[in-house]
Design a protein around this nucleic acid. Structure first.
Lengths: 134, 134
DNA sequence: TCAATTGCGTTATGCTATAACGTGTGGCAT
DNA sequence: ATGCCACACGTTATAGCATAACGCAATTGA
């Protein structure tokens, strides 16, 4: 299963996210890509939907924005487990975290309620190391 | 520290959420309260902000909606730790969950990054017990 | 009394996301 | 080749979520 072949629009959107300092909103991406022929929000949203599907980007629910996936292993576009995000409210930097123990706790919590999990969102808002230094 | 005295608007919004089956969006609340004199979104959002501050309601980031807090002990409006929400995509029901082990894992994760946590969002989307029964 | 604070109401605006329509292209079975 | 299908694309319009900015009224406290 080779790396998914991306369309022009999808590549442009992924590049924008990859080269960005932090998460971008769909409309910010639109503005960045106007010079490349983007005119309407749907062009961005359609590309974002596909990139999410391929596992190449993440959506940050707490800020209606998107980030490129930090993982280098983009060869399999199946889940690599639950991802937690640490989002710095000062500099906007996002750190992607994975933890087996946490997945285990979540799994236990869900099964206690007989709840069938489809997708899990974990977002920690706060201040990163750099921005905490006074 | 007695229970916070609420204004008329705040009470109306809290009542709407308390009596609702599931989470409500701000505009849905607005519609429900038109008969009580509500005319504009800001009337709702201002009440929601205060209720969030008092810890009487929660915001569900993944669906831009709000729910009444399930806790009976509304006397202290400080944090009662991290809350995880199980959100059923079929019936919309929301279950509030608290778990010490979970908080511990998150705390460890954050400290590994030297990250200072302000607020944590955990939302599990899926299907509740009732809606899973075929 | 006067100033400061807080909640309120209103209008206007901005940001986020999708519906609905039509076009073009490439694969592929007939 | 022809016809069909799936998919990406472009465009316009609209729906849904959230806040800025203004001014008024009531409350509190020096």
């Amino acid at each position: 299963m080779a790396t998914q072949q991306l369309t022009k629009n999808q590549s442009l959107v992924l590049d924008a996210l990859t080269h960005a300092e932090g998460p971008l909103s769909a409309y910010t991406i639109l503005d960045k890509l106007r010079d490349h022929g983007f005119r309407a929000p749907l062009q961005v949203y359609r590309a974002l939907d596909k990139l999410l599907e391929f596992g190449l980007i993440h959506r940050l629910e707490s800020m209606n924005s998107f980030v490129a996936c930090a993982h280098p292993d983009h060869h399999h576009h199946h889940d690599h487990g639950v991802t937690a995000f640490a989002i710095c409210e000062d500099c906007g930097q996002v750190t992607e975290m994975h933890d087996e123990g946490m997945e285990e706790r979540l799994s236990v919590l869900a099964s206690k309620q007989h709840f069938k999990t489809e997708k899990t969102t974990i977002e920690i808002r706060g201040h990163c190391q750099n921005c905490t230094a006074e």
